[in-house]
């Protein structure tokens, strides 16, 4: 059988907390019990509304919501009579107020969420992360990347490399963290091994954008490139 590879994994050039793609995810804690409505958008266009409940009796500490999958779920045959007319899909997703909701994407890119409480108040916007939100990514392709908070222009650099030896131990890599505060990313330089987790812990408004700058091959080629014009000293001819 020929290998069918998830090429989206390997061809992600830019990663944006406000436009989620494969291997990027945002995390928010909804500490007030109640029913929440999620508007799932792609490229700014709302695709789907889904719900989840925060219940003090729940012991669920992690609720993963796959935005790509949720956006393509078929409408159920019957919906709750009490639900809002906007709500297309009644889900039974429940989480503890001490738990975390993780929004991720299994395929595609450009996803964002706006979460509203039962009174219709916006309580979370993935395009503008806030205090105590998390943005987690995993970078695969080796090379240099820039990381930037597009809200206040704080910036830094990321270098991703393959492990020097085929160790088979990539799963044991410790996650690296960047603290995002006003006009500051700390640390400003991060070195990662391919697939290693990187988590941005936001202390202020943030939209993190990671952009690939160069690959190691391109960097090596640039260094090796010869100048177009060079000088050499001619030795006098001997007679």
């Amino acid at each position: 059988m020929k290998a069918r590879v998830n090429l989206q994994l390997l061809k992600t050039a830019a990663i944006d907390s406000g436009a989620l793609g494969v291997l990027s995810m945002v995390v928010h804690q909804f500490s007030s019990p109640g029913r929440y409505s999620i508007a799932i958008s792609n490229q700014g266009k709302v695709l789907k509304y889904i719900q989840f409940d925060v219940d003090a009796k729940s012991e669920v500490m992690q609720l993963d919501i796959d935005l790509a999958q949720a956006a393509t779920l078929k409408k159920k045959a019957h919906t709750s009579a009490t639900s809002s007319s906007k709500i297309e899909d009644q889900t039974e997703q429940i989480i503890s107020p001490k738990g975390y909701v993780l929004f991720h994407v299994s395929s595609g890119s450009g996803y964002s969420v706006m979460v509203s409480d039962s009174l219709g108040r916006a309580v979370f916007n993935s395009m503008k992360l806030d205090n105590n939100d998390l943005f987690a990514v995993s970078l695969l392709e080796p090379g240099s990347y820039s990381m930037r908070n597009s809200i206040d222009s704080a910036a830094g650099e990321i270098t991703v490399s393959l492990p020097p030896e085929m160790s088979g131990k990539l799963k044991d890599l410790d996650t690296q963290y960047v603290d995002v505060s006003v006009k500051k990313l700390d640390p400003q330089r991060i070195e990662l091994i391919s697939t290693q987790g990187l988590v941005f812990r936001t202390k202020s408004s943030a939209r993190i954008v990671i952009t690939k700058k160069s690959t190691p091959q391109a960097e090596a080629a640039r260094i090796r490139q010869k100048p177009m014009i060079s000088w050499r000293k001619l030795e006098p001819e001997r007679k």
Binding site: M25, V27, D64, Y100, L102, H104, S138, T175, T195, Q196
Partner: peptide, 20 residues
């Protein structure tokens, strides 16, 4: 598979939140 790294660790006691 890739991903699966720990997002919120619990010191000395594993991981509270893990990436899919």
């Amino acid at each position: 598979c890739v991903g699966g790294f720990c997002i919120i660790p619990i010191p000395f006691d594993g991981c509270l939140l893990r990436a899919p």
